[in-house]
């Protein structure tokens, strides 16, 4: 079943279109930066973007900081929102269920497929941004001679940088798992895939908005997007773990609650589409 879902995902031209669009943004930024050599003013713009002017090997992180707040979660919401509602709308859901594919199994397969999408997307972004980063950005003499600078100014050896970058991307994937869980739940409830995706996006936008509002302080610990950019903390020295750990816990809670809700809703649902 998982195999079938993966092949469905990978054979869909839309999947690759989405990945290409997501990947285009950091590439465009790299080209613009290389041409103008103008970094953002301190305190503005995505994390690491000013640092990549001297060190191209940090560009995968800048790319992650660019796509993580908006592009990636929207794509995940679309893909996961379509998971069940899309099959229902095409009329294929009932035929899957009477194969029979167990409802729980179908849900798991869908989640795996969505996560495969996330992994592929994130890897494509990481690889292309590394390549364009090294080719177009950074001061080559500095890059080959010295270690990378951590956010706290201390040196970071190449294995360390690779390890931390890997952690950052893994963390980003976990964050997307939270979005996927929400969208998947909505997908079991909503009649149309777009409705499910819109619902998940509404939650994202609301969460992002509430985070900027001090009056909503009491809600902040519960917000989905609260700790997403905490991957930046992995590049401080010493590594600041508490935000990342909290982020992992929040995403974990979202995954448990919404996957649980998705399971409860889907296994007891009358399939009337």
């Amino acid at each position: 079943m998982i195999h079938a879902e993966l092949s469905k995902l990978l054979r869909n031209r839309r999947t690759w279109g989405t990945i290409a669009i997501i990947d285009a943004l950091p590439t465009l930024v790299a080209v613009l930066l290389a041409m103008t050599d103008l970094g953002p003013r301190p305190g503005t713009g995505p994390a690491f973007l000013s640092a990549v002017l001297t060190d191209g090997t940090l560009f995968p992180l800048a790319a992650l900081a660019m796509v993580l707040p908006l592009f990636l979660p929207i794509a995940v919401a679309l893909v996961a929102g379509e998971a069940v509602a899309g099959e229902a709308q095409q009329g294929t859901l009932r035929y899957l269920l009477i194969r029979p594919v167990g409802r729980t199994r179908l849900l798991v397969a869908k989640l795996v497929a969505v996560m495969a999408f996330v992994v592929v997307t994130v890897l494509v972004v990481a690889v292309t941004s590394y390549v364009v980063g090294v080719l177009l950005l950074g001061d080559q003499t500095v890059t080959v001679t010295g270690p990378t600078t951590s956010i706290s100014g201390s040196p970071m050896s190449t294995p360390e940088l690779v390890g931390r970058t890997g952690l950052a991307f893994a963390y980003a994937m976990l964050c997307m798992l939270g979005v996927a869980a929400v969208a998947l739940f909505l997908s079991t409830v909503a009649r149309s895939p777009l409705g499910a995706a819109m619902g998940a996006m509404t939650l994202l936008v609301a969460s992002t908005l509430l985070l900027t509002l001090d009056a909503a302080q009491a809600l902040h610990p519960y917000l989905l997007t609260r700790h997403w950019l905490a991957f930046v903390d992995l590049f401080r020295d010493p590594i600041r773990w508490d935000e990342v750990v909290r982020g992992v816990l929040v995403q974990g809670a979202y995954v448990v609650v919404f996957l649980g809700a998705a399971w409860a809703s889907f296994t007891t649902k009358d399939i009337t589409d």
């Binding site: 079943m1 195999h3 079938a4 469905k8 031209r13 099959e87 009329g91 859901l93 029979p100 594919v101």
Partner: peptide
């Protein structure tokens, strides 16, 4: 598995050929 059914019209993945649709269905079990 011992039942074949057609319920309220067929369901197909519109971007796949008929053969690919059947192959995909076959792969699900």
């Amino acid at each position: 598995p011992r039942v074949g059914a057609l319920v309220e019209g067929p369901g197909t993945y519109p971007h796949l050929s008929g053969r690919a649709n059947l192959a995909l269905l076959d792969a699900t079990g």
